[in-house]
Design a binder for these strands. Sequence first.
RNA 1: GGACGCUUAGCUCAGCUGGUUAGAGCACCUCGUUUACACCGAGGGGGUCGUAGGUUCGAAUCCUACAGCGUCCACCA
Length: 921
Amino acid sequence: MSTENAAPEESAGAAQESAAAALPKAYDPKLVEDAIYARWEASGLFNPDNLPDLEGGKKRSEPFTIMMPPPNRTGILHVGHATGNALQDLMIRFNRMRGKRALWLPGTDHAAIATQVKVEGILREQGMKNPRRELGREKFLEEVVKFAADSGKTIVMQTRKMGASCDWSREAYTFDDARNRAVNRLFEMMHEDGLIERGDRIVNWDPKFQTTLSDDEVEMKETVARFLTFKYDRDFPIVISSTRPETKFGDTAVAVHPDDARYAAFVGKTFTPTFCGQKLTVRVIADREVDPEFGTGALGVTPAHSMIDADMAARQSPVLPTVQVIGTDGCMNDAVPEEYRGLTVKEARVKIEAALQAAGLLIAVEEIKQNLPVAERGGMPVEQLPMKQWFVRANKEFTLRQDTLGMWKKGERTTLKDLMREAVQSGQVKIMPEQFEKVYFHWIDNLRDWCISRQIWFGHRVPAWHRGEEIVVGAEKPSGDGWEQDPDTLDTWFSSGSWTFSTLGWPDKYAGGVKEGDLAKFHPTDVLETGRDILFFWIARMILMSTYALGEVPFKTAYLHGLVRDEQGRKMSKSLGNIIDPLVVSEKFGTDAVRLSLVLGNSPGNDMRISEEKIGYFRNFTNKLWNIARFVMMSAPGLARPSGRPEPKTLADRWILARLDATIASVSDDLEKLVLSRPGETLRDFTWNDLADWYLEIAKIEGGKDEMLSYVLSAVLKLWHPFMPFVTEEIWAHTFAAGKDDFLMVAEWPVATGAVADESDAKRFTKLQEIVTTIRNLRSTHKVEPGKRVDTYVFCGSDDAFIAEGELKIIATLAKAGQIHAAACGKSEGMPRPQHAASGMAGTTEVLISLEGLVDPAAEKARLQKEYDEAAKYVEVQSRKLDNADFVARAPEKVIALERQKLADAKEKAEKLTAQLDALK
RNA sequence: GGACGCUUAGCUCAGCUGGUUAGAGCACCUCGUUUACACCGAGGGGGUCGUAGGUUCGAAUCCUACAGCGUCCACCA
């Protein structure tokens, strides 16, 4: 890794110069990105097992692991994926350069229902009416598998385009054989522990896609509903209300509040009213959940079609019977009178209202706002139906297995809910941003049993076998004849819940509670970075699965990014036409620019806005860095890979090294803490302001900067690499790379070497900048011709650092001053003041430029007067503050000293401005 | 109904545990073809930090209430 003894300096320099000249003036990402990615991939360095030892031969020991949230194989990557990729690659590349064994494991998600729905849609567009029926299970699945395969390929290609340094040799798919073994094993274990059971419960049913849904897949949509107040029949003594009269055929009770005097006499009695031609058996029950203020204070209880009613029914003794009146097709079933059978719920609702009206039973109709449960996917209404399904029991007590790792005590009684809660409460899993932990706990508190069986075809088949009434759980078909595998598939989140450990070899690499291979090396993972919208769907379920199966958390930190919105803050959607396709903008502006625009200004949990304008800004920045490199290559003929920190020769050298050190320290510290936006901003400020605008300009003046420029540029490239890998790697190849196989990607992260500029250096440099700015300002306001050099006089204030000859030359050049007359504090007596001059203040330093005739004396006077007024006002404010006895008595010594200094400076400034004003007369 | 978050320059946002004469980028105005960069450089204008109280020597920063916006959860049959 040493280049010190390369070619003789001169020829190396010449080569460099011509190389720089050969570089185009503008960086063109299109020409280099694909080739760079191909070289990275070919190097094998994405695989942590191939990473080189550290300097001094030290082995990499500490792992750093991220599991890529597998994108759904439903199409193409969107800007949300690109955001995740940029953030994860940033963390991975930083930690790789820091010397860790960095593993970023990629993959894709079969996404069961989402993919099947997508393919059904495509087949319908192609003319099929009912693809599932027309094709049959086997043929239909072939179509889905084919689609998923294509989609998977596209996604992997797109992930490469984004520059993701993930280990493709370990790529996983949620629906491959290894993941299937994990799913089956988990199902068996949980079944053995009584945590998975088959039961008759009320489930969410999607009549359109003909499948159950979990609670999290159901959303509430506000709608206007007709709220009917009526009686079942003339003789029934209680008036009830409902927005869904069609379900009343399934009523088995009327519930009232136990303290409601109006109905107390009826409680416990059973009636047999006839509702729209159907004889009901209705018990009047008391339940504290009933709100006596709402409606009539009495409600018809329909245990078959409402989870809440079902809960109420279960609390009764004896338990209320369940009468199902709606079928899986979303239509009234045979349990209702003939005239209603086969009607959709909507049709039945209208018909019943009319019937009640005709019979004189309808007392009132009111339009009310109501939240209707609809499918998260598709938006169609969801029915609650009683069905026999498989459930994960969140509240069931069980005994922790003996072969878990013992982060939780083996053999103890617990519940899945408690495991999920404790993982975060104990601090073993940290959620960023922290406020999401509350949301997480709240979700756990409200969690019901999780229905995991789905009636769709694409997915992991439930590992259970039926023969008549017999059921056997297991991946293998039981011996004997007549066994049929359960036709249902598992909720896609059941399989993705095991993502962090199934991808590392579980269960094969987990014998008797001992982790082996990758599982031992990389689990628990370090960070799980994903969108905040899947906190419940996925984060919570991974914690559940991992703590249950391994007794170990899946990751130490869950980092949740917000939604990416358009520049007006709207969600991106096809219908709005405001979608930003990461690949399209990468093509236009370069991948690095896209990545920067997704990382800078992005804080965990908060939505962020993105626009082409913003990406364009970062494209400009990549070009800026490119040109900084071009400049360094041209102006430093001895450019070479630095072996250590060079010896600074001038004030500017000491200053830039100190600034670089501070930048390295701050950027490293932030990235360690997973603060990802601020370090990018810190770096940008350093690169653009300190380095390009000041140091490089000074380097042109001072010269002899080969070592300094080599050192600073190489550090800057390393610091930027995790943020914008392509342009930095490309520059590296043209500058410091020892050969084709020497990648910046595995260069070691810079270390702050300790401040080299003391406080007086920093102060002197700041003063230099202020003086330059003041002169430029004077020239600009007095419209001095651009090329014209004017004599300049600088009178340092009482607190100013001495300005040396070398610095005067810098000031003169940067500010295009002519001769500079300068005097340090207390040495200005002999120095002449110009006759005709424009004057200004750089802090307490007076700056005058000699002018033949002022452009506008009145304007100049007004300008100085304004400046004086501000200074005078500040003097007043500060004086008042320091005259305040309470302030002087209570504020800390340091603050008081600081305020005194500010007052003194302001006074000095005001005095000098007074003199300047006088001189104008 | 409950919880959480946001409200700082025309726009997008920084301002960590209270002490800056309140910052950046974009946009805007003026000037500039100086051999890294016009995907650039130099200079400039622009904010009583949502409102009202409170704590404090001192509040954009802490507390309370209110308003507006947003998100999540629950859901009254």
